[in-house]
């Protein structure tokens, strides 16, 4: 009886909740869905931007991309960005977190550990543009701090870090690693706190050394966090713009060109809006595909773990 009267009432009251979706839906449509659609539309045109005529070219822009070496080069550099923003920071962050948590936190003191953690995290909080500008000065060939120091050591002709096509990419990558490290370190430290200490005690009693415990217990236990870090950092690496803009503007000789900067160049420097829109669309597809792939991997690994238990 009571159930019967509640049910229709509930169904009606649930409809009320659609009202709460209205502001979010309108906002999403105006700022994301419509611009996304417009961008697709632009990418099918040749357009210099502004009041210039839009000329329908179909998929021509996408076809040109296939033969555009700068475009391929930018995505190749994305792989280096992933190395610098995902792979290296995750590995170093894991090591730092393990050292801070397992060793310094337990044997030296938790205060020391949290001070060190805050230090590693510091680059994360400053505006990326500010970080880039400081590093730009450090790497500057004439007045930069690094070369001044090298000259002080008697090096007569120190390298032009950001001006040499062979050195610019590694220099940019170093800055990105420096910026990123804090994020995995902090997350891994909290992940390690979550791991049941009894697991370690049991393994220690079985005579497993630190490294074996790390491999057999720590790594599997912190898998969820590892996936979150991999996903968010990979997306960030594919999107990276500000550090490139303030450090090298994609140069020298396109050696540090990335997709987002390449589409920016087409939009505003080359006045090839349709082409830039096509680059942005491809970048979006790549990001969504990579994100899906990582999530699938995660789902599969979770399933395998469950079956294993």
């Amino acid at each position: 009886m009571a159930v019967q009267t509640v049910a229709p009432h509930r169904r009606r009251s649930r409809r009320v909740y659609w009202l709460y979706l209205i502001p979010g839906a309108v906002a999403l449509a105006v700022v994301i869905l419509i611009p996304f659609g417009l961008n697709l539309w632009y990418s099918l045109h040749r357009w210099k931007g502004g009041l210039a005529p839009q000329i329908w070219v179909g998929l021509d822009n996408y076809r040109s991309l296939l033969h555009d070496s700068a475009f391929w080069n930018s995505f190749q550099n994305s792989l280096w960005m992933i190395l610098a923003m995902v792979v290296l920071p995750t590995l170093i962050g894991l090591l730092l977190a393990a050292v801070l948590f397992d060793y310094i936190g337990k044997n030296v003191g938790s205060r020391t550990a949290s001070v060190l953690r805050a230090t590693y995290y510091l680059p994360q909080i400053l505006p990326v543009a500010v970080a880039g500008i400081v590093w730009n000065w450090i790497f500057n060939a004439e007045t930069g701090a690094l070369n001044e120091i090298l000259r002080g050591f008697g090096m007569t002709n120190p390298p032009n870090w950001l001006g040499d096509p062979h050195l610019a990419l590694p220099a940019v990558m170093l800055v990105l690693v420096w910026i990123q490290i804090g994020y995995p370190t902090v997350i891994f430290m909290s992940a390690l706190q979550r791991v049941d200490p009894e697991l370690y005690e049991a393994a220690e009693l079985d005579g497993a050394g630190w490294f074996r415990r790390f491999r057999a217990i720590t790594i599997p236990q912190i898998k969820p966090e590892t996936f979150v870090i991999t996903l968010t950092c990979t997306i960030a690496a594919l999107k990276v713009f500000a550090p490139i803009y303030v450090l090298t503007r994609g140069g020298p000789e396109s050696s540090t060109l990335v997709p987002s900067y390449y589409s920016f160049l087409n939009f505003f420097d080359k006045s090839k809006v349709g082409y830039g829109a096509a680059v942005a669309t491809v970048l979006t597809l790549v990001i969504v595909a990579v994100a899906l792939a990582i999530q699938l991997l995660q789902a599969r690994s979770e399933r395998r773990d469950e079956e294993g238990v």
Partner: peptide, 17 residues
């Protein structure tokens, strides 16, 4: 998905809008 989009894909339309 909206959260994943690169800003480049929204930029020019937003700029004209």
């Amino acid at each position: 998905l909206a959260n994943m989009l690169p800003q480049e894909v929204l930029l020019y339309p937003l700029y004209t809008m």
